[in-house]
């Protein structure tokens, strides 16, 4: 892969390959000297047109653990405030010599557009309502740690699905790994085209919680909501929030995930994040390792082999025959 724009561009095997190599990158963080020279001499620009703490920091730490240099372009203090266009900003950064751009933008499709303008690898760190692929890979890895192989498991995604790029990426990723997804939300917070998604829909949260292997809570994205989708946040919290009672209902062995930042008291009751089954901190920790893996795959693994030998079953058979 040359860019990471959307989970839709990946196969189930691609995702499994990321999950396979991620522990090697997590191990680097445990070393006395937590830095390896893999991407020495490469430069990664972080171009964030939207607020972000954990995603930007986690990409930055990931790049630095691999010895890449990072350029932070924070929009509030750059020429964007003087009216510079996205294309001019991107081309200016590229002219300084960069190998990858990590981009977040409020408009869907900006990362794809950048690939047409730039030679650098483009990593989508969230574009509008569209996709947030590294978050989905992180969530797959976290669930893989908790549940093992995801095929056959049932995962509930709860909350503001309509405005959520995380939900769109995760539905695709979980499904590609063989899990079945149930969306839980009031009808106003479901996307218009939900009938075309490979999911089941449930509007009664208690009914959905009775038989799931994992629960994924989404943030109420009030900054993206342009009208009243729920009558009242307190009512929403009562009907769709992860209360202590619902956490008990799903059971103590069922992991609860949230991409952060959490609105305590809205989608998750104030006391619930402290339960052992809530793995939000694992998600953040895994974020660095997964993003290291993605950066290494894009920038460090070299051109593809000349021959697709791995996919030739006859050579596989011959090789294993000689090794036994």
């Amino acid at each position: 892969m040359n860019h990471l724009l959307s989970i839709d561009d990946l196969t189930g095997d691609d995702i499994r390959e990321v999950l396979r190599i991620t522990p090697s990158f997590a191990e680097v963080a445990q070393r006395r000297i937590a830095k390896v020279p893999a991407l020495r001499g490469q430069t990664v620009a972080l171009l964030f047109y939207e607020d972000s703490t954990r995603t930007r920091l986690s990409f930055e730490v990931a790049a630095k653990r691999l010895s890449a240099d990072t350029l932070n372009v924070s929009v509030s203090s750059s020429s964007v405030n003087k009216g510079e266009s996205l294309r001019d900003t991107a081309e200016t950064i590229e002219a300084m010599g960069i190998d990858a751009v990590v981009v977040r933008h409020r408009s869907s499709g900006v990362p794809l557009q950048l690939t047409r303008w730039l030679d650098a690898a483009v990593l989508n760190a969230g574009d509008g309502w569209h996709q947030h692929p590294t978050q989905a890979l992180i969530d797959c890895h976290t669930l893989h740690q908790q549940l093992g192989d995801l095929s056959g498991s049932r995962i509930a995604i709860v909350g503001d699905i309509k405005h959520s790029r995380v939900a769109r990426s995760n539905v695709a990723a979980f499904t590609k790994l063989g899990a079945s997804v149930v969306l839980v939300a009031p009808p106003t917070l479901l996307p218009a085209a939900v009938s075309t998604w490979p999911v089941t829909v449930e509007t009664n949260m208690d009914a959905a919680m009775a038989s799931v292997d994992a629960v994924y809570l989404l943030r109420m994205q009030r900054e993206r909501q342009n009208s009243a989708f729920v009558p009242d946040l307190r009512e929403y919290a009562i009907r769709y929030g992860m209360t202590s009672a619902r956490a008990a209902l799903v059971g103590p062995d069922v992991p609860i995930l949230h991409p952060g930042p959490m609105n305590r008291g809205v989608e998750i009751a104030a006391a619930v994040p402290d339960l052992d089954q809530v793995v939000v901190i694992d998600q953040v920790r895994n974020g660095v390792a997964v993003r290291m893996a993605v950066l290494f795959l894009l920038l460090g693994s070299g051109p593809p082999p000349e021959l697709p030998i791995a996919s030739d079953p006859s050579s596989e058979a011959a090789t294993s025959a000689t090794s036994t």
Partner: peptide, 20 residues
């Protein structure tokens, strides 16, 4: 696992095998 320390990173596909 020496994958992160090889001198041919970027020249050919090199992926880690298992955590050190």
């Amino acid at each position: 696992d020496v994958a992160f320390h090889r001198d041919d990173i970027g020249l050919r596909p090199v992926l880690p095998e298992a955590p050190t």
